[in-house]
Every structure is written in C-alpha cells, then in structure tokens.
Design a protein around this nucleic acid. Structure first.
Lengths: 375, 375
DNA sequence: ATTTCTTCCGAAACCGGTTTCGGCAAGGGA
DNA sequence: TCCCTTGCCGAAACCGGTTTCGGAAGAAAT
C-alpha cells in the first residue's frame, strides 16, 4: 500500500463567476464588461444587451468588496443602535430590522449593525464604520432636536436618512410618523368622551419628536375648544418609573386631570401603577391615551389605547430612501411621512368623575395611606 | 471677472493611511509590511517590531474589504433572523444585538444582519451572504433539533456557532443556557411548595431546546419523588394562544394539575387568560413557573415567576466563540454553557386546593359558562 | 479621395491589500 | 577558499473589480 500524499484541505465552495469569466465568455475585456454593466455611454446598445444577458445567464453578481476598494462603496447600510437609553427601542426593534433588511436585500444591499452608548462613543462608532467603508450611508433612528450624528455625517459628506425630523432640516432626508396628528386626535377623542381637564405627559425634550407631540397636543386642545393649563404639562418621561411619577404629580394637583395623554407608551404604563396605588380604575376614573403601540400595552389591564406605529413599514421606507440618497438623489426631495393608527384598548372612556370629585377620591386615599404608614 | 473653472466636488474626507504610506515611511515594500503585520516567519523580529510601532504611530488599520478580495475574509459576522415565527425572539433581540456587536467591535469586527422567512429562503439568504463574502462566520440562534442551516454551513465549510444545542453535535461549536436545569429547579420549587400534580407545557419539538427542557422537567419530577403523568404533558406551545389552549386542556382533565411549568414565557402568559376565564387566581389556585424572562412577564398580574436568560452576555460569548472558530480553533473545543437565573414573581406559591378540589371549581365555572351561553 | 469626427472597444493602470518567487548577503561546514 | 544553507527582504503577480487613455473603424464633411 502506498500512502496517499498529504493533501491540503480544499474547500469545495462553488467557485464564484467573476467578471473575467464573463468577459472571456463574451470575447470582451473585463473593462468593457464593467463599463457595459455600469451604464457608461461609450458602449453600444447591442453590446450592452449582450453583456447583460450573459451576466444573467451565468449568474454573475459583482463582489461588493472588490468594487468597494475602487469606488469606496460596498452596498452596505449602517445602523448604530444606542444601548444606554432605557429600553427605548426594544419593542420595535425586531420589526424595524425586518423592514430594513428585507428592503435592503431586495436591492442586493446589506445591513451593518453596530451598537454604542451615546455621546462621543456613538460618533466614534459611526466614524469607524465610515472609515472602514462598512457603510455607504446611515439610518439614524430617534433623532434629537439638534442631532450630533447628523452634523458628523454631514461634515463627512456621508449620506443619511433620519427616522424622525430635526429642528434644522436643511439638506437632510427623513421619514417620520406624524406623532403630532396622533396627539391631536387623542385629545379630540378624549374631548368627545366629555373630558375637559386633560393632562399631557411628554417624552424628553432632547428628542425632537417631543416638541412635535406637544404641538399636536396643543392643537388638539385648541381644536376641541379647551384651555391649556400649563400645570397639566409634564415632560421628560421616557420610562415606566418616570411615567408613574408624572401621573402622581398630575393627580396630586388641586384640580387633577380626568384624562392624560402620554407621548410614550412605556411611560403610560407607569400610570397604571399610580392608579392602582390610588385606587383608581383606568378607563373610568382616569382615561389614558398613548403613543407607540408596544406589545406590553396589550398586557396591561385594561389594555392601553394607543396610536400604533408600523415599524416594519418604516424600516422599509427608510431603506429605500437612503439608497436613493446614496445614488445621488437630492436630500430635500427624500422626505416622507406616515400616520400612526389608533389601536383601541380599554384605557379611555367617558369620565366617571369631575375633576373636583376625583380630587376628593385621591385625597381620601392618600390620607388612608399616610395613616397606614404612620407609627 | 473671470468665471472660475467648474470644479468637481471633492469630498474632504480625511485620507486613510494605506499600507503603501506605511511602507514608504519605513523604507520597505508593502509586501514586506504586509508579511510583517501578518506574522510571516521570514521577517526578522527587529523589522517586525519596527513595522508594528510605525503602524501604531500612523494609525494604520488595514481595510477589511481590500483584504477580503484576496483572503476571502472581511472580518464580518453574519446573523440571519427568522421573521416568520411568532414573536419568538422579539423581546431578547435588542440585548442580544448589543452583546454581539459590542464584543465584535472590541475585536474590530462588524455584524451583518439579515432577515428572512424560514425554510429555503433562509438558506438562500445565508448562501448569498457567504457568496458575497459579507460574513466570515455565522451565529445561529434558535437551533432546531436537526438544523438545516447547520448542514448548509457545514457543507460550505463556513464556520458557525450555535446558540443552542443540536441532536448531532459532531464538529460544531455552541453556547447555550442550561434550560433543563431551570426546568428541573422549577419542578423542585413547586414540589417544595407542596404541589404533587404538576403539568408541563413545552415549546415546539422542532426546537432542540424543547427536548432538553422536557428532560429537565422529568429529572425534576423524579428528583422530587413525584410520578409523571403523561396526560399532563403538552408540547408545541410557542405563543400566547397556544399556551392558553394548553392550560385549558390541562385544567379540563379529571385530575388537573395545581401547578404548571411552562418552557416558554410567551406561552405561560396565555395561562393567565385561561385562569381568568375559569375564575382561578394565579399564584394560589394555580401556580405557574416559566422560562425566558421577557419583559411582558412583569406586566402580568401577578408578575410571572420565570427563569431569566441574560441575552446580552449570551451575545458576547457567542461572538467570541465564533471569532475563535474562524481563526481556526477546533469546533469541539468551543462549547460553553450558562445557567438561567430565577426571577421571582407572584405566579407560584403553595397550592390552595388539592387537584380534586380544583376540578370541582373548574367544573362549576364551566357549567356556569355553558348555562350562560345556552339559549 | 482626403480629412475630420464619432462611435466603440482594448490595453493598461489603479484601488489596497496578500502571497509567491527569487536573490543577495551572512554564516557554517568541509 | 569554495560551496551550501539559512535568514531576510524586494519584485512582481494576484485578487476582482473600476476607470482612464488611446486608437481603429466607420460615418460625415470637405
């Protein structure tokens, strides 16, 4: 027996068809083929057709990496998620990603995902992705009123699309849900129920959407012919805890609201805790309408009435926008919006009490509690 | 006035330092520099040090794309999420991604994310990523007992690491949480409460974890000296609806369980609906212990007692494993596990009734309902 | 019949790396 | 002293594309 010679392990991976293979098959040079496929004007229509057809037949797809070293573009989209904010994007993320990637792969693009804490680290991460050509353009979720990511990308001359709007929109593309309309409709709905004292718990004012939602709330109040009491307006509630505290402050007032509009579901869920502590029933003693449509809202009892956002659709549209932007479309022509849709729960309804009656109930309960808590 | 000549828009992007710059600065050729940095043995130690130092000083980092066209490797990890399964990974995803990407960027790698429906489309997606060199290796979440993705990657000779185990583990690396231990401990805890009839609602048997969790359940029963009644064992519950139906079937039996162990939180939440329909109080009339630690569990009342998984840590460890695998480590040496941690809610406690008493309560309620439903 | 444009493609350089090959100089053995 | 290693690096090809440049052939103009 003769021992077989040691053989290098050779991966059986099917060989890719390269531009040279294609060129050989066509009897052209690879330069010509490249120009034909990329729409250069110095290629005759006949040749171009022939090349396209053959490429189709042979299943040729250019290698993005190889293109990238010359062109600087690798057909990849960048998404940097911020991880140090309290659960802000958790519920939407899966759907959002599905939207992004499905639209991306339809165009043969891919998605590069990174995470980082906020501040400078976020900017470093973006810089690295740009520097290493891992992203030709970015999708920026959760825009701040004055967004540093936007400034960075603008100065680097890297295309991006905002998910949300910003205070200074010059030269930037965006997609956004019209949260202000949702807030306006929420107020109108509560007014239709018969509420007259309506509170508003906003998100953090560093986010641009908060300003818009407050505008919407104001518009709703004026549309319903109600007067705004500045004392019923609280901002900065992005978490359950903050939402809980906000509800407490509102209900502790001399003339408490019988209904509260929340700008953020997560915060709205905090109101359930407050209500249960004060012995109030949500939907009757206190009405709540909110915004986002997170799944946890279904699990509150009664389920949260909220304006739901279709995150998957948002992801798809953002992807299409950023690709068009990278391909050279003018930023200001790439602006789209959509509406949130009302999802009925049981958290809103006609008021059972007037504001004054509600005040009495809250006071009674509070005294009970302080008596119980006393020595 | 003389009109200025039309000038091409030149991006001001700071120029990268390339290997040629580095070579020039060192008075070497780029080939030599490349070999020095990549540990070739034909470079003297002195030169190697000198090159490393200069690279550090000049901030040289090789362009992954450029390397890829020769080496086939682009320092990117692939993650393909399945979107057509009911909310399976939704709650964990954000944390999981944070773990993956933070560990990846620590090593200067990036993460390419794609989504797809299951079946052949999933395999096509993986194939595309491999073919286009968008991923040097993959992380496969939610392993099936006999996983087609694994077979594909194995045949393509592409490295991968499983999040979960498989029935045929030859030649593959994995990280997994020991769900079987959690199930065992869940049973023991219920037994310590005084429960003797304990049901088990498993996930879908196509997932490998389900088999392991059932083993764990069995182990717990035997450890607690309890006998297993096959009638109290249901599988295939991955959603709320399925979990609801499973609870209903268990409670409709002649000798219903006073406690149920669920393999999946989402399904366990369905039991709340069943309980409320039957007028049973969870935590007293019926005890529930589950597994996953999804945030919705906190919102059920009482909060769900569950074994929580640290998805972020899982992501980090998986990333490290797959990178080591890509760098050539032997697959079977790359196997790690961790334990889930018990998160106490209010859904379990000592039984208020015996099985027979529970049966009576259920029967009474059911009759009421059918009477009410009658004409 | 020239000359001058156009049209269209080949040739070759280039992008930023990796890898093979060969050769020079120093060292070791005879 | 000569020859053969060995260590170390330069030169050049290569990876899979893109882009610039120039020239041949045909069409149009003179």
């Amino acid at each position: 027996m003769v021992s077989a010679p040691v053989q290098k392990i050779r991966p059986v991976r099917r060989e890719r068809v390269t531009i040279s293979h294609l060129a050989d098959a066509l009897g052209l040079t690879k330069g010509t083929v490249s120009r034909a496929l990329n729409g250069y004007p110095d290629i005759s229509d006949g040749t171009r057709q022939r090349v396209r057809k053959q490429a189709e037949v042979m299943g040729y797809r250019p290698l993005a990496h190889a293109q990238a070293i010359r062109t600087g573009r690798s057909r990849a989209l960048g998404l940097v998620l911020q991880t140090d904010i309290p659960g802000a994007q958790r519920p939407f993320l899966s759907e959002f990603l599905a939207g992004l990637t499905s639209a991306a792969s339809a165009e043969n693009w891919t998605l590069t995902v990174a995470t980082s804490a906020g501040g400078q680290e976020m900017l470093n991460t973006i810089n690295r992705l740009v520097d290493e050509r891992k992203a030709d353009g970015f999708i920026l979720p959760r825009t701040f009123a004055d967004d540093p990511r936007m400034k960075l990308l603008r100065s680097l001359d890297v295309p991006f699309v905002l998910y949300g709007r910003v205070s200074d929109p010059r030269g930037c593309a965006w997609f956004d849900i019209l949260g202000e309309n949702a807030m306006r409709d929420a107020v109108q709905r509560l007014a239709d129920h018969g509420h007259t004292r309506i509170g508003f718990v906003n998100g953090g004012l560093e986010y641009n959407f908060s300003h818009l939602r407050e505008e919407g709330f104001r518009a709703g109040m004026s549309q319903a012919g109600l007067t705004m009491d500045p004392a019923l307006l609280i901002d900065g509630a992005m978490t359950m805890e903050a939402g809980e505290e906000a509800a407490e402050r509102l209900l502790a007032q001399p003339k408490p609201p019988t209904a509260i509009v929340y700008a953020v579901d997560l915060a709205a869920l905090g109101a359930y805790t407050t209500a249960s502590r004060l012995g109030l029933e949500i939907g009757t003693d206190l009405s709540i309408i909110s915004y986002d449509g997170i799944p946890e809202g279904n699990w509150a009892s009664p389920p949260l009435t909220t304006f739901q956002v279709d995150s998957r659709a948002a992801g798809e549209r953002l992807t299409k926008l950023v690709i068009r932007r990278i391909r050279g479309a003018d930023a200001e022509s790439l602006r789209e919006t959509a509406e949130a849709t009302l999802k009925l729960g049981g958290s809103d309804g006609p008021p059972r009490h007037t504001s004054a009656q509600l005040r009495q109930r809250v006071l009674g309960k509070t005294e009970n509690i302080s008596q119980m808590g006393g020595t």
